[in-house]
Each structure stands twice: as C-alpha cells, then as structure tokens.
Amino acid sequence: MSQPDAGVTFGYLDEQTKRMIRRALLKAVAIPGYQVPFAGREMPLPYGWGTGGIQVTASIIGPEDVLKVIDQGADDTTNAVSIRRFFRRVAGVRTTERTREATLIQTRHRIPETPLGPGQILVYQVPIPEPLRFMEPRETETRRMHALADYGVMHVKLYEDIAHYGRVATSYDYPVMVNGRHVMAPSPIPKFDNPKMHDAPFLQLFGAGREKRIYAVPPHTSVVSLDFEDHPFEVQGWDRVCDLCGADDSYLDEVVTDDIGGRLFVCSDSDYCAGRRADGHQGPAAASAAGEALADTMEQVAREHASEDPA
C-alpha cells in the first residue's frame, strides 16, 4: 500500500456521501436489476468518464483491497490508467493488472475473460442505465413500466430488428431480464459477455454518474438475455483466433497496423492475452513484424504501469 495524498478523505468522498451511496447499494442488491436513484456528486473528471463507477468504488473500497481497472478490456488505456491513478492517490490502495489478484474490478464495457470468483466485486461504469430510454424518453413513464413489468416495447424493438435485418442487430448493451422481474441495461458490454452475468459467483454493481442511478446483480442470480423462441439469443463469434496468443474463446478487437490494409485481430482483454503469451501460447501472427511490434508496445505500457505501482 502506497501513501495516499495528505488532506484528502480516504476514497475522496466524504463520509456522509459514502453512507448515502452505501444505503443505495444495499437497496440495489435487495432488488436485483432495479435502478436506485442516488445523489450523485461532482467528481474531478467529466461525466462519461466513469463518474458513477468511481463513486461506487470509492464507497466500498478499503485499505486491503486490490484494485484493477479496465477500459474495453484493456488495463492501459487512458480511462483505466487515470482511474487507477486516482484511487492510488486518494486511497493508497494496491492496484494490479492481473484479474486473479484483484478484489475489486472497475470496468468500462467488458467482463474479463478470466472467470471471476466469489471474493471479487465487479463495478460497471454505466452511461445510460435505463434500457427503455430510447423507446420512452419520459422517466415517469419508464418508472411506471418497470413498476408494472410492462416490457412490451422492448420486445417490439427487438422484433423490429428482426423485421429489418433478419436478426437482432443489437450487439452491445443487450437488454437482460434480471431475477425474472426487471429488464436491465448491462451497460455497453458486448453481448458476448452477457452469459457471464448469469448465475455468476461474484457480486456485480453498476454506477451511472450523469443519470445518478445505482443498480446491482447479486451472486447466483438469473440474468437472461431477451430473445424469441424462433430467434434465440446468440453471442458474437469469430472464424479466427487471437493473432497474438491464439485464443479461440475471447472477444477480439480489430487493430489496424499500417495504411495498406494490414490488420490484426487480438484479445480485447489485455491481461488475458498477455497471460496466455507468457504461458507460451502463440497466435498465427505472433512472429510477424506487425504482431511483434504490437506485443512489444503492450508489454512496454504494462511495464510503465508496474513501475508506478510499488507493490
């Protein structure tokens, strides 16, 4: 544990705010998938950068926690790096890139590929918590629709996708039914990650800073992606493996490597990919010039992070 900034409350938020958020979190856990309003505070970074997730993390984090922050699966993108630095400064907690070492993982738009365990809590950053918002702009109406479990519009929306495109075209923030009662926005994770939410051994907390909503999925709770009998829910698949580590079970990002059409498909989860490569797995392009250059860059960024974190 490094020394937190002097003169800053542990975890940045004052105790009164933490208690308010903690009470909201308990109600969120008691009513899985229901959005609890909370008095979201101004944070020292703009809305859209994870202010909701940060407030949730700040209200639960303790000195013994080990924090991992990911942005689209990667530990070393701007958003993840700055949030990790923020918590090192205001809470002095140990941070890590390794999924297995973390007790608390704050995420923007992915669930790690490495399965999480019961000792871990996943905190999602949520831009738009209301799954019905694009069908019904009025909060008073969406509140009533949730109260009555009136989710017809959501099925109409998915059906219109099928009528237009022959399939449900929603590929991220794919709506789920939680505990058989509340339709919930899983935040903009790819639908590839939806099955990981169901009957998960870990607690999932969601924070939306601009919209000031907190919601939760307790462990071992039913989370079902909405679908139709004749159009069952499916996740994305690739007819290729990760070019660097050869994984055939992970979500792949397309990386453009030059201006003459060169591209690589690599794991979006940078820790998963690096771990597999360290174990000796090799993808088809691992030995190519572009593959080596990309792997070198990723290792360099990870080293810079490690040097910042005197464990």
């Binding site: 933490k18 208690r19 308990l26 856990v29 607690l203």
Partner: peptide
C-alpha cells in the same frame, strides 16, 4: 475509527445481504 471501521462494517453488511 469512523472511516475505516464503517468501511469494514459496510463490506460485511454488503456481503451478508448479497449472500
């Protein structure tokens, strides 16, 4: 210790309620 005791107590309460 109002800050750290409350944090530990809350995590125990959160654990109790979520399991």
């Amino acid at each position: 210790d109002p800050v750290f005791d409350a944090q530990r107590l809350f995590r125990a309460a959160l654990e109790a309620l979520s399991r």
